[in-house]
Amino acid sequence: MTKKPHHEHTHAHSLLPPDPALRAKAIETLLVEKGLVDPAAIDALVDVFSNEIGPQNGAQVVARSWCDPDYRARLLADATSAIAELGFSGMQGEHMVAVENAADTHNVVVCTLCSCYPWPVLGLPPVWYKSPEYRARVVREPRAVLDEFGVRLPEDVELRVWDSTAEIRYLVIPQRPAGSEAMSEAELAALVTRDSMIGTGFALSPEAG
């Protein structure tokens, strides 16, 4: 058996300017001039992730699950299909699983190996989600990490950490906040934060929202 050397690569990236903005410009210029990338397609992606795909999508899913028990059942049974009912699907959300928080259970999501994140419902991940600090620590000391987010859980609450090691992507369904009984689905969606759908936060209380 022949064993591949670990570093057969020349690390071409070391040939580029060290400044990140200049480096990005150099890459784009070369790729566009070679006809490898269409700059209008880059514009489209930036627009989609800046304006169309984000946690406002997941918030709609959660609000619906709070209002409609049948929808919640479908979401827990087959999250990919239930999320697609609201028009959200695709890249980095091809295989969705929804996990629900309750009085005795709290869920939190991580990708220890890279930065896997459910794009169709949450958009692109925040810097902290991709940070070595979060990826290293949340599997080992989840309560200490959640404490830094202001999420303090009683000792008897079971904490479930989900490490996204394959193409399964998780959406946490936070608990519906007290005092929100009379609110409409659209009003409820405004209470659902990005962090509450990762498990590093709670849904806002109606007074705060």
């Binding site: 890459i27 784009e28 880059i42 930036v46 992730f49 810097v127 902290w128 830094e148």
Partner: peptide, 26 residues
């Protein structure tokens, strides 16, 4: 500590979006 940033933008600089686009499209 976890580097938590309040009201974080999707991209912190325009070049980040261009790099995302290049990597995705390649």
């Amino acid at each position: 500590p976890i580097p938590i940033e309040a009201d974080e933008p999707v991209f912190h600089a325009a070049w980040e979006g261009r790099v995302l686009g290049c990597r995705f499209l390649m």
